[in-house]
Design a protein around this nucleic acid. Structure first.
Length: 213
DNA sequence: CTAGTGATTCCCT
DNA sequence: GGGAATCACTAGC
């Protein structure tokens, strides 16, 4: 008997838990994004946890700002930030309202609507590279700051939703240091990925860069 | 395959 | 002012 994929939306209670519980539990879940061209479905294969005010690596570490306000709101909503002057990255807010933790979606496998994703990811040489990395994932799914604050648990005709999918068994979950995180936040092994999955991004340690003259 | 570097702009200090 | 939860491209092994 082969398990069929569960298309039921994840309830808000799924996200209203400690972020270190939610992060590994998101692997294998499905993200459905309604793009202007058509729907794209992504199976989540790699994430990172950011533990709000306790975590020097988190955008919320120094309190609420114009950028990170959504992180302090209710769980199950989307936090999108702009970085490196070019890219967007997408998170799902966890924990109760007032607790600013979130899970960064770092990579995934596009299981439906790849023809729409390819049009925005022209440099991808294989479909497994369409969403291999957080900014590639956001680009493939046409996610930018306009989606910041979107409720991913809402019913009806929404731009973005998270479905139950098929959770990855715990013996196939791996974890290690977070990619690109500098300073004291780098010590936590809060990156989680699916073992041996070809859509998981390569690990890159943080490298301080000097500004060009 | 790995390592090095330019691109480009928002946001906080 | 200058770093940033990154990517794409190049050189070299």
């Amino acid at each position: 008997m082969i398990a069929t994929t569960d298309r039921t939306p994840l309830p808000r209670t799924f996200f209203d838990r400690p972020v270190l519980e939610v992060a590994p539990d998101l692997l294998g879940r499905l993200l459905v994004r309604a793009t202007p061209d058509g729907p794209i479905t992504l199976r989540v294969t790699e994430v990172e946890a950011y533990d709000g005010g306790n975590d020097p690596g988190s955008h919320a570490y120094r309190g609420p700002t114009a950028r990170n306000g959504v992180m302090f709101g209710p769980p199950g909503h989307v936090y999108v930030y702009f970085t490196y002057g070019m890219w967007h990255c997408m998170n799902l807010v966890c924990g109760p309202e007032g607790v600013a933790s979130a899970v960064l979606l770092r990579a995934g496998e596009i299981v439906d609507g790849a023809e729409h994703a390819r049009k925005r990811r022209l440099s991808a040489r294989h479909d497994r590279e369409l969403a291999k990395g957080p900014a590639r994932l956001a680009t493939a799914l046409d996610v930018d700051r306009a989606l910041d604050g979107t409720d991913a648990c809402a019913a009806g005709d929404t731009p973005l939703r998270v479905l139950t999918g098929t959770a990855v068994p715990s013996d196939q979950v791996r974890n290690g240091p977070r990619t690109g995180v500098s300073g004291d936040g780098a010590v936590h092994p809060w990156r989680y990925w699916v073992a041996d999955d070809p859509t998981v991004s390569p690990y890159r340690a943080h490298v301080p860069r000097r500004r060009r003259s």
